[in-house]
Simulated scan of single mutants.
Amino acid sequence: MTTPFSYSITYTLDKSHYLETYDASAVAINPKKAYLIAIGLAALGFAILLFTQIEPFAAWFLIALGGLEVFSIRFRRSWWLARQLISKAASTDLTLTIDETGVTSQSIHVESHISWDDISKLEKTSQGWLLYHSGGKTYLSDRCLSAEAQAFIAAKAVLVSE
């Protein structure tokens, strides 16, 4: 009789972890389309400013919104990282447990459990695994997983894809 699989590790949520998580899970954007929206907002603001009698505040607001959109596109990764590093979860220890029931994360700020039944897709990335579930996506880094844990997740990925 085989014993049920169980793996547990504790690691710190640091800058390198957040950078790896972002790189693996961020949705790729089309920069041309994103900048086009920013240019459109600014152009609409200038058109309102130059060709209408509407209060200039609304026009300047749209122009500033276009500029903010350009800033958010250009510094998307840095802005996301900064938000994570100033969050209360930064630099805290997280205990990750992978077993037959699912994936559990516990820290002083969060406790979550994702059941294997709730996972709709498991995707292997270059440095870890993306788990797609009803709550969004969760990233598991290979650097905190043993070879046995990676093999267990790979076996679950085959089952989920069927």
Rank of each mutant, 00 (worst) to 15 (best):
34 A>Y: 04
55 E>F: 14
77 R>K: 09
107 S>W: 07
143 R>P: 07
111 E>Q: 12
79 W>F: 06
73 I>L: 02
141 S>F: 08
77 R>C: 03
81 L>T: 10
47 A>Q: 01
1 M>S: 10
67 G>Q: 04
61 F>V: 14
78 S>H: 08
55 E>G: 15
18 Y>V: 03
78 S>Q: 11
138 T>W: 11
16 S>F: 08
136 G>M: 03
86 I>C: 00
1 M>L: 10
122 L>R: 01
69 E>P: 01
87 S>V: 09
29 I>R: 02
59 A>E: 12
46 F>Y: 02
90 A>L: 07
19 L>V: 11
7 Y>T: 05
6 S>P: 03
137 K>M: 12
6 S>R: 06
141 S>V: 09
134 S>N: 11
11 Y>A: 12
143 R>N: 13
17 H>W: 12
106 Q>R: 07
123 E>R: 03
108 I>E: 14
53 Q>M: 15
142 D>T: 00
136 G>A: 05
159 L>I: 14
15 K>I: 04
139 Y>N: 09
105 S>K: 07
20 E>N: 03
50 L>S: 02
138 T>A: 12
126 S>I: 08
34 A>G: 08
49 L>R: 06
14 D>N: 03
100 E>D: 09
152 F>W: 13
88 K>I: 09
146 S>D: 13
109 H>T: 10
133 H>K: 07
39 I>N: 13
54 I>K: 13
85 L>F: 09
83 R>F: 05
137 K>V: 13
114 I>P: 00
59 A>T: 09
93 D>Y: 07
50 L>C: 01
88 K>R: 15
106 Q>E: 09
84 Q>M: 15
61 F>G: 02
48 I>H: 05
139 Y>T: 02
123 E>M: 06
63 I>P: 01
63 I>C: 03
74 R>S: 09
162 E>N: 06
110 V>A: 00
45 G>S: 05
7 Y>P: 05
86 I>E: 07
135 G>R: 06
136 G>R: 02
20 E>H: 09
14 D>F: 00
18 Y>F: 07
56 P>M: 00
84 Q>R: 15
30 N>S: 10
104 T>L: 14
104 T>W: 14
98 I>N: 01
66 G>E: 06
13 L>P: 02
74 R>F: 08
5 F>E: 11
160 V>A: 14
145 L>F: 13
3 T>G: 07
